[in-house]
Design a protein around this nucleic acid. Sequence first.
DNA 1: GTCTATAACCTGATAGAC
DNA 2: GTCTATCAGGTTATAGAC
Lengths: 205, 205
Amino acid sequence: MITVKKKKKTDGAEEKIISAARKLFTEKGFDSVKTRDIAKEAGINLALLNYYFRSKENLFEMVMKENMGQFMNVIAGIVDDEKTSLEQKIEMLVLNYIDIFSLNPDMPLFVLSNTKIGDHRMKIREKFMASYFMKQINEAMKSGKIANRNPAHLMLNIVGLTIFPFAAHRMFKSSNGLSNEQFNEIMQERKKMIPKWIEAMLKVK
Amino acid sequence: MITVKKKKKTDGAEEKIISAARKLFTEKGFDSVKTRDIAKEAGINLALLNYYFRSKENLFEMVMKENMGQFMNVIAGIVDDEKTSLEQKIEMLVLNYIDIFSLNPDMPLFVLSNTKIGDHRMKIREKFMASYFMKQINEAMKSGKIANRNPAHLMLNIVGLTIFPFAAHRMFKSSNGLSNEQFNEIMQERKKMIPKWIEAMLKVK
DNA sequence: GTCTATAACCTGATAGAC
DNA sequence: GTCTATCAGGTTATAGAC
């Protein structure tokens, strides 16, 4: 009896579509991307896109689940770790954010600007609010170890210093600006500096 | 001889369209907004929109020129002032950014994410690069007065700490999150804190 | 200046041949 | 599985009456 191969697709059309979709959606957002653009970028036909994924919305959701799931796992592993200190967590967050987003520089702006992923964004928020990390911040505030009155400031500072450069990377790079290499170099420097900066800021009253 | 009024439009239809367009474009971006939405929001007819502004693209450009021009004037007045110190400029930038964006909280994300305004974004960048502010930063770096090796870090820090919260405001506010009042309160606190934080960061080697 | 009606085009999705 | 052709509905823009 002869075993038959499951699929005989030319060359992973499904994967090509997903990856083209991820690229374009992340770059331009849901409404700006046309299904024809995705098909073209993937090098396949428009009809095939609808054969694999029933609709544009569906394709978008697939891409999102993949993107977010992967990201959330990394972050959850850091903020829920009961063995690391507050300072260690801050450093881990900075390092991991910069590593992840150096590979996907358009993701931050995409997550911030795309209303279609409200649910996913809420999960990120909730994860943080319910984390052991948040507990540690509140304790440090009560004991006077850190000077802020509101934990929101610390969160905004970490995220602002780390993620904002990615959100603005196209603006910074645009003509006469930085090359990709220069930008990445700057972000590598920030890996070392941001934890130190945050520490200095925490002492300011 | 009787003077005749120039226009006899019902009630500033042109202005109503511009302001509706600004609101919607800033909120959702060019492609997501339909001309029908704008007409409806402005309380006028679709045809009238095309009577005043020849096309959607044109209307978008009008809105942008207004938005950016106003913003640029404020910023230019600060960064080109040869009488204020580096520290004073930083404080002025922070205060003015927060005041402007408290009134237009969607603007930062809009400017960052909308590829259609590449030209305007470049002007902002160029204004900064050629400013007296930039000169002062470079001098302070050479004299060792501030510790960074790269002026980009200072710029990213100011802008990241100040503007990022606005770019993320919808995420922060979304269900179970902050109210508008709480958010504004936090931003008022940051007016005072960010200049102090920046000062502390500048000393970190 | 403002409207209704409609033309001209774009876009997501499907039918049907191979 | 993959393609070409095409439909159905949405969207921008214009024609023409008032």
